[in-house]
Amino acid sequence: MKPSSEPIFWMLFGGGGMLSALIGPVLILVTGILVPFGLLLPQDTMSYDRMLAFAQHPLAKLAVLVVISLFMFHGCHRTLHSLHDLGVHTGTGAKVAFYGVATLATLLTAGLLLVIGF
């Protein structure tokens, strides 16, 4: 039997589902609501200097890469399978497109984290 790539994508889906279930709401709350409105948190929470220092830390780089990559793989996997439920017949092309977008986002994130430096 030909080895399937499905378990890999399923694990990325599961990892992203778990991570976003744990920290997805609080991340959206902080970056999308609290900081833009200047609520609750210090005004410099997401200032350029603080964010640059954050993104230069090796552990923070790993965290950023894991969050963006797993969120993308989770979202793309689930959307790909939802298309079937909507009556859209997906084949290899759709698979390549959806997982390709998630892979591209992962590579871009890694590249930007390297450009930002240590």
Binding site: T31, G32, M51, M72, H74, G75, H77, S82, A105, T109
Partner: peptide, 18 residues
């Protein structure tokens, strides 16, 4: 999942702008 994907892209753009 669509919203989560879009949010990850918002973060990616933020990293690019940073």
């Amino acid at each position: 999942a669509l919203l989560l994907t879009a949010y990850a892209l918002v973060l990616l753009v933020g990293l690019w702008r940073l």
